[in-house]
Design a binder for these strands. Structure first.
Length: 274
DNA sequence: CGGTGGACCTGCTGGC
DNA sequence: TGCCAGCAGGTCCACC
């Protein structure tokens, strides 16, 4: 479900809602997520600790607990983190419930259970197995067109698969990869070794532009994505190609095509993307 | 060695 | 109406 804009939207919500609150209880209803949750360890890690800040790295959320502890979340394809007044009953797929006093709780809900919640510490973050091999943040200063071009050296990968490689650049998932390539007028199956500097500049600019625009619209809600307040995003109204097979391209009216790359759908205009 | 394909899960949709 | 195939926003790892 969530790519960088959705995770960033959730981060902002969590930050508003949770900072300064103290976790008073944790309930594990389903421990078998992407990684098995050790209920005792989670309890020991979190209960009685105050949330000091909420960060994002790639598609991970880092909920910092005083002192020096972190809850590392990933939402997988279908995960949600919802914060609000305590619910009267548990919904199906509400796997983890964090109580913060009598008036507030956070629920981790995830039908497909590809998500994860890992207790860790600030000291372990730099070498955390889930974080250490991640590439650059696309909205950071370090993400430049020269960086992208250098990463593509000696690779013949299709540019779409290259964009979705988290060891190169993080946060770009299936929706925003297609959208970025549309904006950059690049065909998703084009091998990266045939791109020229002008293409790398266009691609770099497009990735940033698409992600920032999507953050500004609070993400894309195709079916079920909602933020930590339960609000849908608005960027689904601004998608040019994703999910639009057979519809006319906004630039030239040619039919949007769908192809499968590495098992995932890619959408593009065969006329203006070369 | 880089790159692809399957595995991990549940739920929804569309065709028959 | 029911059943089944195919598809879904992510990531890892075995295997060419």
């Amino acid at each position: 479900m969530p790519e960088l804009p959705e995770v960033e939207t959730i981060r902002r919500g969590l930050s508003q809602q949770l900072v300064g609150r103290t976790i008073s209880a944790v309930r594990v209803r389903q421990a078998k997520l992407r990684h098995v949750v050790d209920a005792r360890a989670l309890h020991e890690h979190a209960v009685g600790r105050t949330i000091s800040r909420v960060e994002r790295r790639a598609k991970y959320l880092l909920i910092h607990l005083q002192p020096g502890r972190v809850l590392l979340f990933h939402l997988g394809m279908s995960g949600r983190l919802r914060v609000g007044a305590p619910a009267s009953e548990d919904a199906k797929h509400d796997h983890l419930i964090f109580q913060m006093g009598a008036d507030l709780e956070m629920r981790f809900h995830d039908p497909r259970r590809f998500g994860m919640c890992l207790p860790t510490t600030v000291a372990d973050l730099p070498n955390h197995p889930r974080l250490r091999s991640l590439g650059e943040e696309p909205l950071s200063e370090a993400f430049t067109s020269d960086y992208l071009r250098a990463q593509a050296k000696r690779s013949r990968k299709p540019v779409k698969n290259f964009l979705m490689d988290a060891a190169v650049v993080v946060g770009v998932g299936n929706i925003y990869a297609s959208e970025s390539l549309y904006l950059a007028k690049l065909r998703p199956n084009r091998p990266v070794d045939c791109l020229r500097p002008v293409h790398w500049t266009r691609l770099h600019d497009s990735v940033r532009q698409v992600l920032q625009a999507a953050i500004d619209k609070h993400g894309t809600s195709l079916s079920d994505y909602v933020d930590s307040n339960g609000e849908r995003g608005e960027f689904q109204n601004e998608l040019f190609v994703y999910g639009r097979e057979g519809e006319p391209c906004a630039r030239d009216g040619h039919r949007i095509k769908r192809i499968v790359q590495a098992g995932r759908s890619s959408f593009y205009c065969p006329w203006c993307q070369r």
